[in-house]
Protein backbone atom coordinates (compact mmCIF):
# COMPACT_ATOMS: atom_id res chain seq x y z
CA UNK A 1 0.00 0.00 0.00
CA UNK A 2 1.42 3.37 -0.99
CA UNK A 3 1.93 6.06 1.63
CA UNK A 4 -0.85 8.14 0.09
CA UNK A 5 -3.31 5.26 0.16
CA UNK A 6 -2.34 4.48 3.74
CA UNK A 7 -3.13 8.03 4.77
CA UNK A 8 -6.45 7.93 2.93
CA UNK A 9 -7.47 4.65 4.59
CA UNK A 10 -6.34 5.79 8.01
CA UNK A 11 -8.11 9.14 7.81
CA UNK A 12 -11.27 8.13 6.02
CA UNK A 13 -11.61 4.46 6.98
CA UNK A 14 -13.65 4.87 10.15
CA UNK A 15 -16.27 7.18 8.72
CA UNK A 16 -16.36 5.25 5.45
CA UNK A 17 -17.48 2.28 7.52
CA UNK A 18 -20.04 4.50 9.24
CA UNK A 19 -21.32 5.61 5.82
CA UNK A 20 -21.55 2.03 4.61
CA UNK A 21 -23.44 1.00 7.72
CA UNK A 22 -25.73 4.01 7.33
CA UNK A 23 -26.48 3.12 3.72
CA UNK A 24 -26.97 -0.56 4.50
CA UNK A 25 -29.29 0.12 7.44
CA UNK A 26 -31.38 2.67 5.52
CA UNK A 27 -31.61 0.55 2.40
CA UNK A 28 -32.09 -2.65 4.39
CA UNK A 29 -34.84 -1.08 6.45
CA UNK A 30 -36.75 0.20 3.42
CA UNK A 31 -36.35 -3.05 1.54
CA UNK A 32 -37.05 -5.27 4.54
CA UNK A 33 -40.30 -3.49 5.31
CA UNK A 34 -41.40 -3.79 1.68
CA UNK A 35 -40.71 -7.50 1.44
CA UNK A 36 -42.28 -8.30 4.79
CA UNK A 37 -39.25 -9.05 6.92
CA UNK A 38 -40.40 -6.58 9.49
CA UNK A 39 -43.53 -8.52 10.30
CA UNK A 40 -42.21 -12.06 10.15
CA UNK A 41 -41.15 -13.73 13.38
CA UNK A 42 -37.67 -15.25 13.63
CA UNK A 43 -35.74 -16.97 16.40
CA UNK A 44 -36.83 -15.79 19.83
CA UNK A 45 -39.75 -13.98 18.29
CA UNK A 46 -37.46 -11.34 16.86
CA UNK A 47 -38.22 -10.15 13.36
CA UNK A 48 -35.52 -11.08 10.82
CA UNK A 49 -35.33 -7.46 9.77
CA UNK A 50 -34.56 -6.41 13.34
CA UNK A 51 -31.73 -8.93 13.50
CA UNK A 52 -30.28 -7.71 10.22
CA UNK A 53 -30.54 -4.08 11.25
CA UNK A 54 -28.79 -4.78 14.54
CA UNK A 55 -26.09 -6.99 13.06
CA UNK A 56 -25.05 -4.49 10.39
CA UNK A 57 -24.03 -1.74 12.85
CA UNK A 58 -22.46 -4.30 15.16
CA UNK A 59 -20.31 -5.55 12.32
CA UNK A 60 -19.43 -1.98 11.38
CA UNK A 61 -18.58 -1.16 14.97
CA UNK A 62 -16.39 -4.23 15.25
CA UNK A 63 -14.46 -3.29 12.14
CA UNK A 64 -14.11 0.30 13.29
CA UNK A 65 -12.76 -0.75 16.66
CA UNK A 66 -10.39 -3.16 14.94
CA UNK A 67 -9.19 -0.28 12.80
CA UNK A 68 -8.68 1.85 15.89
CA UNK A 69 -6.66 -0.92 17.49
CA UNK A 70 -4.47 -1.17 14.40
CA UNK A 71 -3.97 2.59 14.38
CA UNK A 72 -2.97 2.63 18.01
CA UNK A 73 -0.43 -0.09 17.34
CA UNK A 74 1.08 2.23 14.75
CA UNK A 75 0.09 2.41 11.13
CA UNK A 76 3.32 3.96 9.94
CA UNK A 77 2.00 7.50 9.94
CA UNK A 78 3.63 10.67 11.12
CA UNK A 79 2.52 11.62 14.64
CA UNK A 80 0.17 14.43 13.64
CA UNK A 81 -1.62 12.34 11.05
CA UNK A 82 -1.69 9.32 13.35
CA UNK A 83 -3.43 11.34 16.06
CA UNK A 84 -5.90 12.75 13.55
CA UNK A 85 -6.66 9.28 12.22
CA UNK A 86 -7.18 7.89 15.72
CA UNK A 87 -9.47 10.76 16.63
CA UNK A 88 -11.51 10.20 13.50
CA UNK A 89 -11.80 6.46 13.96
CA UNK A 90 -12.79 6.80 17.59
CA UNK A 91 -15.37 9.41 16.59
CA UNK A 92 -16.71 7.06 13.94
CA UNK A 93 -17.15 4.34 16.56
CA UNK A 94 -19.05 6.71 18.83
CA UNK A 95 -21.13 7.91 15.90
CA UNK A 96 -22.02 4.32 15.04
CA UNK A 97 -23.24 3.63 18.56
CA UNK A 98 -25.16 6.90 18.79
CA UNK A 99 -26.67 6.65 15.33
CA UNK A 100 -27.85 3.05 15.29
CA UNK A 101 -28.65 1.98 18.85
CA UNK A 102 -32.33 2.64 18.39
CA UNK A 103 -32.71 0.10 15.58
CA UNK A 104 -32.97 -2.40 18.43
CA UNK A 105 -35.79 -0.50 20.08
CA UNK A 106 -38.08 1.44 17.76
CA UNK A 107 -41.03 -0.05 15.86
CA UNK A 108 -39.70 -1.38 12.59
CA UNK A 109 -42.10 -0.41 9.84
CA UNK A 110 -44.55 2.01 11.46
Amino acid sequence: MSAGTRILVAIAGGFTLWALVFTAVYAGHATGCEIGWGLASGPGGIAPLRMVLVLIPLAGLGLTLAGLWLLRRGAGLAPRLATTAQLLTAAAAVATVYNFTFVAILPLCA
Binding site: Y26, A30, C33, F102, P107
Partner: peptide, 17 residues
Amino acid sequence: PHLSLALFSAASTLVAV
Protein backbone atom coordinates in the same frame (compact mmCIF):
# COMPACT_ATOMS: atom_id res chain seq x y z
CA PRO B 1 -41.22 5.26 8.69
CA HIS B 2 -40.33 6.45 12.16
CA LEU B 3 -37.20 4.37 12.29
CA SER B 4 -35.86 6.07 9.16
CA LEU B 5 -36.66 9.44 10.65
CA ALA B 6 -34.78 8.52 13.80
CA LEU B 7 -31.78 7.45 11.73
CA PHE B 8 -31.53 10.83 10.08
CA SER B 9 -32.46 12.78 13.17
CA ALA B 10 -29.60 11.19 15.07
CA ALA B 11 -27.14 11.99 12.30
CA SER B 12 -28.48 15.54 12.11
CA THR B 13 -27.82 16.17 15.78
CA LEU B 14 -24.46 14.42 15.55
CA VAL B 15 -23.10 16.86 12.98
CA ALA B 16 -23.26 19.61 15.58
CA VAL B 17 -20.33 18.00 17.39
